[in-house]
């Protein structure tokens, strides 16, 4: 059984654009088989042994096995009409949800895993950045994250030092904001919404919400799928698959401050699903 915090969360189960209208679909959430149907016009239903609450937000169908105590987190940029917004991919990965989220928050792997795209040697240094855990908004926030990227996005012609902001507003969801190469006053938004299938298996749904007036949807999707395709074999070779929350379990360095804050935040929430709780 999932811990109460996890059971009461909203969880993504499918992208609306990838779901046929009017035909029941099956998926698994927290070890529980779910049937859901997209009825069109922003309405969907879901059931396990009984009917489940449903939300459609950011192009995805969300449900919960418990009683969600809060509304889903806000992404104000999603409402901006000139953005390209869609699900870039839903990918099955043999890893726990918090390991997938932590990888999304990590800059220091860019030169080694996303070589020539999001990073390249010798530009490996992770400069000092700021991390806070906001009690008011109940989220982890990392700001002033800077990294040199050879090809920051599909709209980029050349490398640039890119500034990131990372938000973790949900134990299994994270959002990054990175400098737009088109409009220096605005930022591209990319989200990873992780559906925990079991404690050690996930479906990772990737939202893009970006400024790009020259690439078609397929090009933008292919860019994200290439990047995530590079992460997948790394994630599937991580052991243990569940995220250890004991700060002494692995060897963090200064570049990992956001990961340390994330693990501490999960501990404080009493989450036990997909993690190895601290003793």
């Amino acid at each position: 059984m999932p811990d109460p915090t996890t059971a009461n969360l909203w969880h993504p189960i499918a992208a609306c654009a990838d779901t046929p209208v009017g035909t029941p679909q099956r998926t698994t959430l927290l070890d529980t088989p779910i049937t859901y149907t997209l009825h069109g016009e922003g309405h969907a239903t879901a059931a396990s042994s009984s009917m489940l609450p449903v939300l459609i937000r950011y192009g995805y169908i969300w449900t919960s096995l418990g009683t969600p105590t809060a509304d889903l987190f806000d992404i104000p940029e999603y409402a901006e009409p000139d953005r390209r917004r869609f699900n870039a991919a839903s990918v099955s990965v043999h890893v726990s949800a918090p390991r997938a989220v932590e990888n999304f928050l990590d800059m220091s792997h860019f030169p080694f895993v996303h070589t020539g795209i999001l990073g390249a040697e010798p530009h490996t240094e992770v400069k000092e950045y700021d991390v806070e855990t906001s009690a008011e908004r109940d989220e982890v926030l990392a700001t002033r994250c800077r990294f040199f990227q050879p090809q920051p996005s599909t709209a980029a012609d050349q490398g640039a030092e890119v500034e990131y902001v990372y938000r973790v507003p949900h134990p299994n969801c994270a959002i990054l904001y990175k400098s737009s190469v088109i409009d220096e006053t605005r930022r591209d938004v990319i989200g990873i919404f992780v559906q925990p299938v079991s404690q050690e298996r996930v479906r990772a749904h990737m939202l893009v919400c970006v400024l790009d007036d020259r690439s078609d949807d397929e090009t933008i999707k292919r860019f994200q799928q290439t990047v995530f395709g590079q992460d997948k074999p790394i994630l599937e070779n991580q052991f243990p698959k569940r995220l250890p929350l004991d700060p002494r379990a692995e060897s963090p360095v200064r570049a990992d401050r956001v990961s340390i804050a994330y693990r501490r935040w999960l501990s404080a929430k009493g989450i036990t699903y997909g993690v190895i709780p601290a003793a």
């Binding site: 490996t124 240094e125 992770v126 060897s251």
Partner: peptide, 14 residues
């Protein structure tokens, strides 16, 4: 060597 922090030597205990 820890590339994220190229200036500092890694702690010996690692």
């Amino acid at each position: 060597y820890i590339p994220a922090h190229p200036e500092g030597a890694p702690a010996r205990r690692i």
